[in-house]
């Protein structure tokens, strides 16, 4: 239960971090909050030769408005999702999801950028970037780029990040007056990984759904948007018939993995239950 020996480098700038990684290659890992990486090293699932500590890079910190987006620095800690007023106002879905992320002490260290970069399919925040239509800003040896969340999560723990690249910030479109959101998850105990979780963001016009993005987690290899269910709801006033149709559409949207603990049929059932509850809450908020 101890990590293999490694060297440690504390980078002061993004350039230093990228340069160190480029020189060491696949044997280097960036470390931020470390709440998933440190256990992985202890279990020797990974055994890098160099850890590059990025937590002292000022450019990766801070939350501010930038155009029509809220720019959330990659080093923003989970606990700041609860305490930062700009997040509560302009990205309330993240604020609502934060209490469900692990335990308080983990939230004090874990970072938003780290969670998105790891892309654990059972984690709350990666899935919420999908619901929010967020953009992920990446720095790497070949410069900076922004990738839509829709194009970021590729497969199990596999993302659009290339070796040697790191997330600098996540851009979330500002929450608007005509939008509504809902979040919840089903877990055996609070703080455990969810059996199924879901977050959604809807734009409404005259009591009808103009646009809706619904994202599930703990349902497969990646956080998953349920586009069939979304399409069912467009133009509806969230009447019970349309909610039932959206619940039925999940069968085509989700293909839960085979698992002895939670069989696919059970997970699909739980997803339908959760979707029904959240759409009900969305309607009540009208």
């Amino acid at each position: 239960m101890k990590a293999r020996a490694f060297s440690y480098f504390r980078a002061a700038t993004i350039e230093q971090a990228l340069d160190a990684h480029a020189r060491v290659g696949d044997d280097a890992r960036f470390i931020a909050g470390g709440q998933s990486l440190v256990p992985a090293l202890s279990l020797r699932l990974q055994a890098p030769r160099l850890l590059i500590d990025i937590t002292h890079i000022g450019e990766l910190r801070g939350v501010r408005r930038e155009g029509g987006f809220l720019r959330i620095g990659a080093l923003t800690r989970h606990c700041e999702m609860l305490s930062e007023p700009l997040i509560a106002e302009f990205a309330p879905l993240l604020h609502a999801a934060a209490p469900f992320v692990a335990h308080p002490a983990i939230r004090n260290r874990g970072t938003f950028g780290g969670s998105v970069a790891l892309a654990d399919p059972a984690s709350e925040f990666p899935a919420m970037t999908l619901a929010l239509d967020a953009e992920i800003e990446i720095a790497g040896p070949s410069g900076r780029r922004r990738v839509k969340a829709d194009d970021f999560f590729l497969d199990l723990f596999e993302t659009a990040l290339q070796p040697g690249e790191l997330i600098t910030a996540i851009y979330v479109p500002l929450f608007k007056a005509d939008q509504r959101f809902a979040f919840d998850e089903l877990a055996r105990r609070r703080g455990d990984y969810a059996l199924v979780g879901c977050g959604m963001l809807a734009t409404c016009a005259g009591g009808r759904i103009d646009d809706i993005r619904i994202s599930f987690f703990s349902v497969g290899n990646t956080p998953t948007r349920v586009k069939g269910a979304e399409a069912t709801l467009i133009g509806s006033s969230l009447d019970s018939e349309r909610i039932a149709a959206a619940q039925a559409a999940l069968e085509g949207d989700l293909a839960p993995p085979d698992s002895d603990e939670v069989p696919p049929a059970m997970r699909l059932h739980l997803a339908r239950v959760l979707l029904g509850r959240l759409l009900g809450r969305l309607k009540e908020g009208a």
């Binding site: 470390g34 709440q35 202890s42 606990c79 335990h103 983990i106 004090n108 260290r109």
Partner: peptide
């Protein structure tokens, strides 16, 4: 591995797992 909480200390005033950092 950050599951049991026996190693909590305060780091700059906030509770953290001292087993989950070097």
């Amino acid at each position: 591995m950050g599951a049991c909480g026996a190693c909590l200390v305060q780091l700059d005033g906030r509770a953290v797992h001292s087993c989950l950092m070097y």
